[in-house]
């Protein structure tokens, strides 16, 4: 949200957004009474553009663009301190997770690096059936234009056996790739609505 002097409550309120968040997260955002306990408990409040209490408030006000474009939802570590401490029993971490999914779908991810990491991580899983760190990290570093970050750690990790030169061999890696195909097909078959039984008929992974 741009810092404006006046926010038109009626004109800026997106009721569909509130409903979508509530349906997808299973949480009732109107239960939040803005006590600030989530903000007080959150280890990343210092880094957020909007503290989590304000993310909840913006969601109550139906400020779709501001919420989905915020950096907070991507910096959230999903540590669940907010959920644990919430006096109103709201699963705040679940709301944050929901907002991440919605933000990715709407293609409004504000943190390019984080989006790239998610993408590369999944691509690695799709290709090798399991994450191949030695491949993932250089690609991620290149795509985020900082090729030598953490490069110095590689020898020590290799020495300890935490990184290997070759991807791990797993059985039926093509079946894992199929999961991605099925999800992709379902996602784009009917107006982006997922089908009820995506995998059951063909999986024996």
């Amino acid at each position: 949200m741009e810092r404006t002097n006046t926010l038109s409550i009626q004109q800026s309120r997106d009721n569909d957004f509130i409903r979508e968040v509530e349906e997808a997260s299973g949480q009732t955002v109107s239960k939040c009474y803005q006590c600030g306990n989530c903000m007080a408990s959150c280890v990343y409040t210092f880094a957020y553009d909007y503290p989590v209490t304000q993310i909840m408030r913006l969601t109550q006000l139906g400020q779709r663009d501001t919420v989905l474009g915020s950096s907070s939802i991507w910096l959230c570590a999903n540590c669940q301190a907010c959920t644990t401490r919430c006096p109103q029993n709201i699963d705040v971490a679940q709301v944050m997770e929901t907002l991440r999914v919605m933000s990715r779908k709407a293609n409004t991810v504000s943190q390019r690096d984080i989006r790239v990491f998610y993408d590369e991580f999944l691509r690695s899983v799709k290709t090798f059936g399991r994450v191949f760190e030695t491949g993932l990290l250089p690609v991620y570093n290149l795509r985020t234009k900082r090729p030598f970050t953490d490069f110095d750690l590689a020898p020590r990790l290799m020495w300890k056996g935490k990184l290997s030169f070759l991807p791990a061999r797993i059985k039926k890696r093509k079946k894992i790739a199929q999961i991605f195909e099925v999800i992709k097909r379902d996602r784009f078959s009917k107006d982006g609505k997922a089908r009820p039984e995506p995998l059951s008929s063909q999986t024996d992974i």
Partner: peptide
């Protein structure tokens, strides 16, 4: 005591 000042939007 770690808390929030929700009026400022900061952790205190």
């Amino acid at each position: 005591v770690q808390g929030a000042d929700t009026l400022l939007g900061v952790q205190v």
